[in-house]
Design a protein around this nucleic acid. Structure first.
Lengths: 335, 335
DNA sequence: TGTATATTCGAAAACGTTTTCGAACCTTTT
DNA sequence: AAAAGGTTCGAAAACGTTTTCGAATATACA
């Protein structure tokens, strides 16, 4: 292994000079700095990150908390897309990313302990149970954190704009003349609450009264439950003219029931999804859906986190909202 | 920060005694060991991994090389599933995982340099361009590596059993009486070569001659290209009775064309996919497909890698093949 | 020329561990 | 009672950096 020492001996200068030259300190003359850099290049020097972070207490490493409670975690395109963008945003800033989990080998540890042990400079928290005490401990610790799609008091967060999403969906559907609009929503989370509040307020604003019978709970990313709800809707004597699904993937469950009944989308019934996954744009008829900007969300989360890490005094907790875009497909009929 | 020193002062013993007690060295008496452990617990001690790995040259950290050449990388369920299982397998052995990329901040570095800088004890390589010189450099370095779905000379690899996969598919299709069977395959990789070799040899073994016109190249995870190929097949005067797709997702492209022509699966034409993604089992009719065991693949890759890390002398390069399973759906008609 | 100021460098301490080796003590054996 | 062996512990070095502070030299100014 090539160390500072090798370079210093090669160049006939001291350890500190080499270190300073390589780190661009300006109390080293141009000439020696260049000489040192050339030697480093020639000898194939790589800094030892362990030694470096032992000294500096920085690791250039951010943790990612991604717990797959329903075990669909990374299989969900919203999250895998976000992860990719977290990864590339972090890389471009010189940070690596490491997954944070609850235990290492036999050793049981909390998320906080794990992050601290691994020396993460900060942690992005996404796709977890935000009521988990372990998560709360991490957020309240001295380690900078940014949450995605959930807001804690003293911690920055990046939110997909669920208010806008549902608003756009509702307005679009209503503008197409639909009045009996059913909604299948996900489990009771803050995301779901926002979407439903947005739906209700949009109805109210437009002076449309909504039928509580047309609202049913299912689960995100669970086509079976959405299929059940769809069946119940179709069984109503006064069935809805449009069904809003909790997400694109869940819609597939509903689609099966609809086709099984011999009904056609959108002629017999209109549907609309949420997420804008690749599949939604491949399906025919093309699915009308609200595309969440998971790439931007991941990017913003990392940017805010790194700002907090590098400028802790200047950076104040902030709530960043990322809006998506209504993708007008072919599944909502003009009435 | 609580360090060894704090514990040693608290207990009135030396640094080394504390270290040895916590690491279970046996030249420390039961009583003092327990006293030290209790103190560590009480003071909330966490070892400093940087200091530890500076000394030991181990990091308990494995790198994952996942380059999204087509940028569909982690969006592909095969890979996101594998990543999840890599993650949990590594965790259960006490290792964290870190993504390895080509550059950190402004600093350009090769994969090898990155892995070395970050001090990875080993690297799992998947979903990359295996002909990339940077990948080859890493594989030939002193850092233990395991590749997925590709074989290098002196490096262990874990392979999804593409020979078995295509064999099972072909045998099944032929057993259902199909004789004009079209194959759409992915870009020219070792995986594709294996699948096609398997298809050809199965034909030969069964004494069926295959029509080269019924073989077309598309790309993995690209429904548009598969749609094109499907159209060409359907335009043939003597069109195939069954189409084998490169993967389940690509099939959706073909499905659109088929339905657009007013044809029905499986009555008018049979189809079969590859991968066994969640979607395939939700679709109606349920897709017949070969489910690759991505979870097992990830797990085996990590196990082999850690074996290599911890027992370098005992561990010899090995090629591990993981078979999948034919999921008999409803898309292949009995002729 | 002498003094003040910049510039350039190096010695040494420090970060928190692990590990070697020897010292001290205790137990057993003869 | 002495020797031999085993057990338990600590001093100190080492891992590869960064950083402080002072020394030495060069430059500027009067």
């Amino acid at each position: 292994m090539v160390t500072l020492k090798d370079i210093s001996e090669y160049c006939g200068v001291s350890n500190s000079t080499v270190s300073k030259a390589l780190n661009g300190q300006k109390d080293i003359s141009k000439q020696t700095a260049q000489r040192v850099k050339d030697a480093a290049q020639k000898l194939g020097y790589l800094p030892n990150s362990a030694a470096r972070s032992l000294k500096t207490n920085k690791t250039l490493n951010v943790g990612v908390l991604f717990v797959d409670k329903t075990s669909s975690g990374l299989r969900h395109e919203y999250f895998s897309g976000m992860l990719e963008s977290i990864k590339s945003a972090a890389e471009s800033k010189g940070y690596d990313i490491t997954f944070i989990s609850r235990n290492l080998g036999e050793r049981q540890m909390s998320f906080y302990e794990h992050a601290k042990y691994r020396g993460c400079d900060g942690v992005v928290i996404a796709s977890v149970d935000f009521s988990n005490p372990d998560v709360i401990e991490l957020v309240n610790s001295e380690i900078p954190t940014v949450t995605v799609d959930y807001v804690y008091d003293r911690c920055s967060s990046v939110l997909s704009d669920n208010l806008d999403g549902m608003k756009q969906i509702a307005e679009y559907v209503f503008s197409k003349g639909h009045r009996r609009v059913a909604v299948i929503h996900g489990e009771n989370t803050s995301v779901t609450q926002k979407r439903m509040a947005s739906f209700r307020s949009t109805c109210k604003r437009l002076g449309l009264k909504l039928d509580e019978k047309l609202i049913k709970e299912a689960r995100y990313h669970d086509p079976k439950l959405s299929a059940l709800a769809t069946r119940e809707f179709l069984d109503l004597e006064d069935r809805p003219t449009c069904i809003i699904y909790p997400d694109d993937f869940s819609f597939i469950g509903g689609k099966n029931i609809i086709e099984q009944r011999g009904l056609k989308v959108p002629d017999d019934i209109s549907v609309i999804g949420y997420d804008g996954i690749l599949l939604s744009q491949i399906l025919r008829p093309k699915l009308t859906t609200y595309k969440q900007n998971s790439v931007e969300i991941g990017k913003k989360a990392v940017q805010k986190l790194i700002e907090q890490i590098e400028e802790p005094s200047l950076s104040i907790p902030e709530i960043i909202t990322v809006t998506g875009k209504l993708l007008k497909g072919e599944t909502v009929k003009e009435l």
